[in-house]
Design a protein around this nucleic acid. Sequence first.
DNA 1: CGGGCAATTGCACGGCTGTGCGACATGATT
DNA 2: AATCATGTCGCACAGCCGTGCAATTGCCCG
Lengths: 346, 346
Amino acid sequence: MSDGPANDGKAPKKERMRFVSAEQVAQLAGVSRSAVSRTFTPGASVAPATREKVLRAAQELGYHVNDLARGVLANQSRLVGIVATKPEIGFRAHLAAALAKFLIQRGSIPILINTGQTEDELLAAQKMLIGHRAEAIIILSGSPPASFFELAQRNGQPLIVIGRSEPDADHVRAGNSEASRKAATVFFEAGRRRLAVAGSNTGTPSIIERESAFLSTAEGLGAEVFIGRGADSDYESGIAAGRALFSNAVHPDAVYCASDQIAFGLMDHVRQVVKLRIPEDVAIIGFDDVPEASWLSYQLTTFRQDPLVMAMRAVELMERRLANPDLPPGYERVIPELVIRQSFRP
Amino acid sequence: MSDGPANDGKAPKKERMRFVSAEQVAQLAGVSRSAVSRTFTPGASVAPATREKVLRAAQELGYHVNDLARGVLANQSRLVGIVATKPEIGFRAHLAAALAKFLIQRGSIPILINTGQTEDELLAAQKMLIGHRAEAIIILSGSPPASFFELAQRNGQPLIVIGRSEPDADHVRAGNSEASRKAATVFFEAGRRRLAVAGSNTGTPSIIERESAFLSTAEGLGAEVFIGRGADSDYESGIAAGRALFSNAVHPDAVYCASDQIAFGLMDHVRQVVKLRIPEDVAIIGFDDVPEASWLSYQLTTFRQDPLVMAMRAVELMERRLANPDLPPGYERVIPELVIRQSFRP
DNA sequence: CGGGCAATTGCACGGCTGTGCGACATGATT
DNA sequence: AATCATGTCGCACAGCCGTGCAATTGCCCG
């Protein structure tokens, strides 16, 4: 009297529903499984009539090739890891979104790894990517330990680094030094003589590069230089930097901020707390040109870093590497353009 | 005289490097492949000595289980799709990041699908998720067509919807109506009588819900009501709404904005273009409490919607559904709390 | 020292797929 | 009409893995 697969006792039907398999389609269409496989393989040899039968059966059953199994066989998963800390903030958010879009366009599957900076977390993320046979890993931020590179290398997973100069790996980054030198120069040429940089104590390589290039140029020009730093490179750090730079009697008359987020915090502090005018009393230049930079409250003059361009370059590097793993490391440098708004006009 | 696998002629070594397989580990360790498999399967029966040998060999070769193949066998991929349009903007960015974090914590692989709103794009994304046998799909935004739900249903992929009431699917959303009624009420109780809502023409269900609940409550209280809308629900839309609401001689003295982004645009327009004071001339309430809301330039009174809480609820719903696919649809409603800042004080 | 029991191990299968190769049908050609 | 080339199809294998089952080992105790 039992019907079906004897659902006896407790067992709450553990087995997940199975997707339709090629075997079932073959059966319904009255052909062999090979015919089904060939129907969905471009360039394979199938008679139009058979193809038609298979497609009809597939349609009826709602069949779709199992890309996982296909990947196991073909030794390619199409999975690509995007590794970032705080991927919801500022420029990184735009970069991650752009990467996801381009990766999907080329038929890859973007995996978003939102990880902390601790070595354990990174290692766990990497294990996951290796386990799933990710074809490549794109790193957006931070400074992964050497072991990260080594492990990826060993498993044949190309690593693309964005925003950091990594001589042994493919990388794409902005021309931080050029931009920072230019910032110091335009400030100086506009008659500003007390130049400051607002950076971060826990700076990423990009931040550090911007700080130091600006400082050395400013000093070279003979200007008085100031440094203010916050804990990170976000809004609060901008406030902290502003506090450090504007608590003395003599303060800078121009501040170069290592990120737009820092600039926003610093501008708010300068205007609302210190009660100085921008740009009359203090000129500001930022970096990134996130959408907020054009908001009326900020009108920030800043270096434009196009996330679409950088993401595309990164994907191109990845494709190049996948096509030929033995190529020497390549790098793309995107030169940022200074977008002039109200916070400083040369 | 040929060495190696006869690299004859053009063929540029197409074959991708293969990862280490269990077979190779078995060979090196001098055991059967089963022993290797058991070593990496918790709870399987392996002698400590064998286990040790296997682990040593695996370490030396850099072996890691192929989760793809494991997934094919066990009929579970651990892949979870996160579908969003413009995942880099505002609240959605925080939601997407939080989801990625929680999914990783529970051992799932978050796939970020950055898609447009056209039906074709959504269908392509879904095909991809079906092909890779994603275990569940979390939708952050927009209004997918009915076919989307149908196709997912048919393939046994649970669908979790965030920010939209979807009676036939698991969903988690904010208490938009309660919040919006409260907004109208506190405005009124503070003596404001010309109440406006700033919304969007292409509103998501959340936006629409907020608009209408505010409007009906405001009318019920006997206040004069205004409506201003922009094309989307971002900063520019806030400017547009501000233009619509403040171009006549008689203008609102309190505006409820359907999102923080709208509020920022509207506040900037009101202060910088219309030259009114906030909150003296115009009181503002927003929705979301993104970090920018606490910036000194805005100090926005707004309804707090915690992305961490919403993401966690969504993941819980997903787990529940995966554990028991036959459950009736569940939903979680998160009640937003009004965070008081300078733009309006009850 | 032998027997029984538990632990461990290897074999083989199952879960999906793509594809080389031989078998077959079919149309065209001499 | 016989033969050949061509296009299709199915079989079987390969590519990874987990696991049931039976065989083997090792150990303990009588």
